[in-house]
Design a protein around this nucleic acid. Structure first.
Lengths: 141, 141
DNA sequence: TAGGGTAGGTCTCACATAGAGACTTTAGAG
DNA sequence: CTCTAAAGTCTCTATGTGAGACCTACCCTA
């Protein structure tokens, strides 16, 4: 278990009032969110973790994404250099997506997040049940 | 640098075709996304990492969130047991939010993601510039 | 005693984003 | 001669998000 304080300290430096008022200091949390902070990116990267996949393979693997968002998410990840796109000149042409080295470098930090989810999900689930069962005894205002 | 293969293997087991068709296997990636996969949660948790904060402090720290989304994000995080909410009976009442132990346990994995962003952001930025400069030489279809 | 400020929200409306599903092109299979 | 498949694009509709007015209760100042 590593120590989170350095990342937290960097982030809070960004958040100080003068940092916000003068110039947009480079915030690593915003950077992460900018790349993978949307609905599908993390799922996409994990799906490509084991091997390259073609468009419709990805669609079958993540059944609840629309083609529209699949296209858009892949394009954004390609733009950020996390995946690469290869067109094979078959008829009809087939397109393969795979993680770039940069995308692969994301797997380790992502894995630690997944491990967290795996270990803690039962706690989260329990908290939800507790919260949903007692909606009225805490008046909001 | 830890080894991501175990998390990847767990995830790909979830994604196999029979897993999807028969019953919804418990997928840790979906679990993560379910809790912190929205626009503001990660930012909120990082803002609460150093110390508890009150509603309007949070609003000042994250200036581009609306009150509406601030309320909703805090409620969702509270529901998941990641933060706790304390009302102090002052007049008018003040409300303090702070990370629960469960929320604090998220800081380590999140820090590894932030470290990644810090180290790799220049690569991502370079990839973006490259992509945006060559929009036409790769016909999509 | 009227007016203004503060705290933590809620409410409504307008706009931006996401999803569903039809449509496209080219070729091979039956 | 029709059907299917590939990798998308396009349009329409549904959902999510943001802006900002409003609320309640109290304190302070004039």
């Amino acid at each position: 278990m590593s120590d989170a304080s350095s990342a937290i300290e960097r982030f809070s430096r960004y958040q100080s009032d003068d940092a916000q008022s003068v110039e947009p200091v480079h915030c690593p949390v915003r950077d992460v969110l900018d790349c993978i902070g949307d609905k599908w990116s993390i799922l996409m990267i994990m799906t490509l973790a084991t091997r390259p996949r073609r468009f419709s393979e990805l669609h079958r693997a993540i059944r609840d994404i629309s083609k529209r968002m699949l296209t858009q998410t892949l394009r954004d990840l390609e733009r950020d250099g996390l995946i690469t796109r290869h067109v094979f000149p078959t008829k009809p042409p087939s397109v393969e997506y795979c993680l770039s080295p940069l995308g692969q470098s994301l797997l380790d930090p992502m894995a630690s997040l997944i491990d967290w989810a795996d270990r803690r999900y039962s706690d989260i689930h329990a908290a939800r049940v507790r919260f949903d069962r007692a909606p009225c005894d805490v008046p909001r205002q």
